Amino acid sequence: MYTISEVAKLLGVSAHTLRYYEKEEIIVPKRNAHGERLYDESHVAWLRFVMRLKQTQMPLTQIREYARLYKEGEHTTIARLNLLEDHRNAVQNQIMNLEATEKMLADKIATYKALISEHRD
């Protein structure tokens, strides 16, 4: 079991972020006899998944919806699948946009390097 500060350090987030995720019902940690939050390996794995979704710009509302569906049980499998497939499509669009932007930047950089080289000669 991990404390909130241990999980925060492990994941590179603040304890405030973890409390916020709890407030938003994205995670529900266990509590000890003193009311302190305790996280097990399944909590850490779930939070890693949530952090990855955040890194790929999944809106918090969709993460919250996914968490809600997961808690509801197996009968929500299709809805969770659809949510993740939609997000994967959004990620694939992001990748295409980033690749196009990278190509444009590479072309512009090559142009400037050629101009600089011409002026040196």
Results as ranks from 00 to 15, higher is better:
1 M>W: 01
1 M>E: 04
1 M>Y: 07
2 Y>T: 06
2 Y>M: 12
4 I>P: 00
4 I>D: 00
4 I>Q: 00
6 E>I: 08
7 V>A: 05
7 V>W: 04
8 A>S: 02
8 A>Q: 01
10 L>N: 07
10 L>S: 06
11 L>Y: 05
12 G>K: 09
12 G>C: 01
15 A>N: 09
15 A>G: 09
19 R>Y: 07
19 R>K: 06
21 Y>P: 00
23 K>D: 11
25 E>C: 04
26 I>G: 04
26 I>C: 06
27 I>K: 04
27 I>Q: 01
27 I>T: 04
30 K>E: 09
31 R>P: 07
31 R>N: 02
34 H>D: 09
35 G>N: 03
37 R>A: 03
37 R>T: 04
38 L>V: 02
38 L>M: 09
38 L>K: 07
38 L>P: 02
39 Y>T: 04
39 Y>I: 12
40 D>K: 00
42 S>P: 05
42 S>F: 07
43 H>I: 05
43 H>L: 04
44 V>H: 06
44 V>L: 08
46 W>M: 14
46 W>D: 08
46 W>V: 15
46 W>I: 15
46 W>E: 06
46 W>K: 06
48 R>Q: 14
50 V>G: 03
50 V>P: 04
52 R>K: 15
53 L>N: 06
54 K>G: 07
54 K>T: 07
54 K>F: 03
55 Q>Y: 08
56 T>M: 13
57 Q>A: 11
57 Q>E: 13
59 P>E: 15
60 L>N: 00
60 L>M: 15
61 T>E: 10
61 T>G: 08
61 T>R: 10
62 Q>P: 02
62 Q>T: 10
62 Q>E: 14
62 Q>L: 11
63 I>E: 08
65 E>Y: 01
66 Y>F: 15
69 L>C: 05
70 Y>G: 03
70 Y>T: 14
72 E>W: 03
72 E>L: 10
73 G>K: 02
73 G>V: 14
73 G>W: 03
74 E>T: 12
75 H>Y: 04
75 H>W: 00
76 T>K: 08
77 T>D: 11
78 I>P: 01
79 A>S: 12
80 R>K: 12
80 R>F: 10
82 N>S: 12
83 L>Y: 00
83 L>F: 09
83 L>N: 01
83 L>G: 06
84 L>K: 03
85 E>T: 13
86 D>C: 10
86 D>H: 13
86 D>R: 14
87 H>L: 07
89 N>R: 13
90 A>C: 12
91 V>H: 08
91 V>D: 01
91 V>N: 00
92 Q>F: 10
93 N>D: 14
93 N>K: 14
94 Q>E: 14
96 M>W: 00
96 M>S: 12
96 M>R: 14
97 N>R: 11
98 L>P: 05
98 L>T: 11
99 E>P: 05
99 E>R: 11
100 A>S: 14
100 A>D: 10
102 E>C: 12
102 E>S: 13
103 K>G: 00
103 K>Y: 08
104 M>S: 15
105 L>H: 05
105 L>C: 10
105 L>G: 03
105 L>V: 13
106 A>M: 14
106 A>V: 11
107 D>I: 02
107 D>M: 09
107 D>E: 15
109 I>F: 06
109 I>K: 13
110 A>L: 10
113 K>F: 03
114 A>G: 00
115 L>S: 13
115 L>D: 13
116 I>R: 14
116 I>C: 00
118 E>S: 08
119 H>P: 06
120 R>T: 03
121 D>T: 03
121 D>I: 11
121 D>P: 04
